[in-house]
Design a binder for these strands. Structure first.
Lengths: 146, 146
DNA sequence: ACTGAAATTCTTTTGCT
DNA sequence: AGCAAAAGAATTTCAGT
């Protein structure tokens, strides 16, 4: 990817609503040129979309946890991500190398909700779970530096 | 938090650039009313900001990993997050309950970069590390359902 | 690919209920 | 808190280089 495109992406990571006028000033291009580049980045899938960044505490989901899962029957094909995709508390699902097969990142309101969620995960996907509670988040979703 | 506010936030999670006109149509409010609510959500810190969602492969950082760290000398005060905050490859830092003290989420270009990053982490923070490589990401940053 | 300008739409402010 | 209308700014399109 090119240098100016990289800069545009980096700027949009810090402020996803930055105007093309301001992006132009920061890159030395006209608004139309920036606009065209952003459109292409979107078309090529480099830019997947735009999202609001929320305070999870304020939105009623103060409890974050990582849940590692492992199939109970390793001889069966593992379609855990599909089986779990309907559970809204699961914010992310990573297939990982190591003893366990997936790491889930989940957000709930309180410990009792986590207990309930774990039961749903175990029964939906036929897996064992290992939960790591997040106590605080020094930083998260930091923009890449470019 | 109120029901309409929750809906506005949920919509902005799916499309952070959705116009106030469209937000109004989806919530049954006028553009001004929606605008006022979004402004308050921003002031109250419920909405922290807006960001572009990028394809990390396309942007040259295809390799993701979770690195759990543990202080070598547990008697010392642990200021790892501060010490590590200058390392751009670290996208997130979570303080966690359990055997280890923090989980870092990192993104690099290739395995050799990860090796280099691990060396920097160990020397900067005086910690041992345990790395879990992400093989694929079935889903990530899914919007909360509301 | 970039520029500049015109047409359209969105944001933002203000006054009113 | 919400609505409507007006002013200002941004997006989007288009012709030209």
């Amino acid at each position: 990817m090119e240098d100016i495109d990289r800069k545009i992406v980096a700027l949009l990571m810090r402020d996803g609503r930055m105007s093309y006028t301001d992006l132009g000033k920061s890159t030395g291009l006209s608004t139309s040129a920036v606009h065209q580049r952003v459109r292409r980045l979107e078309e090529r899938g480099v830019i997947r979309g735009y999202a609001v960044v929320v305070d999870h505490e304020a939105v009623g989901l103060p409890l974050t946890a990582f849940i590692s899962i492992k199939p109970i029957d390793p001889s069966q094909p593992d379609d855990s991500p599909d089986r779990l995709s309907g559970i809204p508390e699961i914010e992310a699902c990573y297939s990982v190398a190591g003893d366990e097969s997936y790491i889930l990142k989940v957000r709930v309101g309180r410990p009792a909700d986590l207990e309930d969620l774990l039961a749903r995960i175990r029964s939906s996907a036929n897996v064992t779970t290992r939960t790591t509670i997040v106590l605080s988040t020094p930083y998260e979703n930091r923009p890449m530096t470019a």
